[in-house]
């Protein structure tokens, strides 16, 4: 459904997207997982023709995005990261005038606006302005607007960023409904658990490159031979002395320290012993777990840094 090949986008001397290739199949939820500035939004903008590629090709439903932007936009609904609504109009009017741009007949459009409001559970707020809604309501409305033209493909740019866990779960339910309705979804996120839970396949993107791509299980399996040692110490760790020490042990792939907790990825069992010895001599251990890698660990291992 979406085919991207060797896509490059530069802004002056900044390379936002650095030669990425991926395919999104019909009916799947494809996740773009990456930290701030990874190039997620830039890629999405290129997919809808809001931004022109520096090089590479993008085809959607077989059509080249630079040659047929209008045909492509008829098939795409986009929920932009910084999506806006017109502050002077209430949300119902906003939806109506957005739908009008798609050339929908008025009666049909009115019906769809009603459906969108019902579906996003905002019927009671139809006369309110966008900025009078809560963050979660706004997000639902933005996705509902993207659905208005009944597109085959939905691009959701960080649909849950900044939401509380409960509201996030609501939006997740919402996105799962899209899949049930047969839509192809490309979504971007910073959240590992979100990608893990929602996506059929994930591309991990950093510095404009895809550094891994696969189903959540495949990605975790890539790390299966890795062992993650999760230690809680008696007291907080002072400075990064311990971090340097641990990184110096051969076989340690990454170290992440958070207050009195250390998470260490190691490549083989023999290293575990060295790691433990090093930690015990300097700090007392009060809790120890050896765990299966999560997507967080995959990301840490691949990029050497944390996603958030």
């Amino acid at each position: 459904m979406i085919e991207v090949e060797n896509l490059v986008k530069t802004f002056g001397d900044v390379t936002a997207v650095d030669g990425i290739s991926f395919r999104v199949r019909k009916g799947e939820i494809f996740g773009f997982l990456g930290p701030n500035g990874a190039g997620k939004t830039t890629t999405i903008n290129i997919l809808v023709g809001l931004s022109l590629p520096t090089s590479g090709t993008v085809r959607i439903a077989g059509l080249d995005v630079t040659k047929h932007p209008i045909e492509i936009r008829k098939r795409i609904g986009i929920a932009a990261q910084d999506a806006y609504f017109d502050h002077h109009l209430n949300i119902e009017d906003n939806l109506f005038y957005h739908g009008l741009l798609y050339g929908l007949p008025r009666r049909e459009l009115k019906r769809r606006v009603d459906t969108a409001l019902r579906w996003s559970n905002l019927e009671r707020y139809r006369n309110k302005k966008f900025h009078q809604l809560s963050g979660g309501m706004q997000r639902r409305l933005i996705v509902a607007r993207a659905m208005l033209s009944d597109p085959e493909i939905l691009l959701l740019d960080e649909p849950t960023t900044g939401l509380d866990p409960q509201t996030r779960r609501q939006v997740w339910k919402f996105i799962k409904d899209l899949k049930v309705a047969g839509k192809t979804v490309l979504l971007t996120t910073h959240y590992m658990e979100e990608a893990d839970l929602l996506c059929d396949r994930i591309a991990i993107i950093d510095h404009g490159r895809i550094i891994a791509c696969g189903t959540p299980d495949e990605l975790k399996k890539m790390q299966a031979k890795n062992i993650v040692v999760d230690i809680k110490l008696r007291r907080e760790i002072a400075g990064n002395q311990i971090e340097r020490e641990l990184n110096g042990i051969p076989g340690v792939s990454y170290v992440k320290i958070e207050d009195s907790r250390i998470r260490i990825g190691v490549a083989e069992e023999a290293t575990v012993e060295a790691v433990l010895r090093s930690v015990i001599t300097t700090n007392g251990i009060c809790e120890l777990n050896i765990v299966r890698p999560t997507l967080d660990d995959v990301f840490l291992h691949l990029t050497g840094k944390e996603i958030r």
Binding site: L50, E71, R73, K74, D82, Y84, L101
Partner: peptide
């Protein structure tokens, strides 16, 4: 700049 109506319109099939 404010309502971003232009960008929203440009992501619809409008030239």
């Amino acid at each position: 700049d404010w309502d971003k109506t232009l960008i929203t319109a440009l992501s619809a099939p409008v030239k």
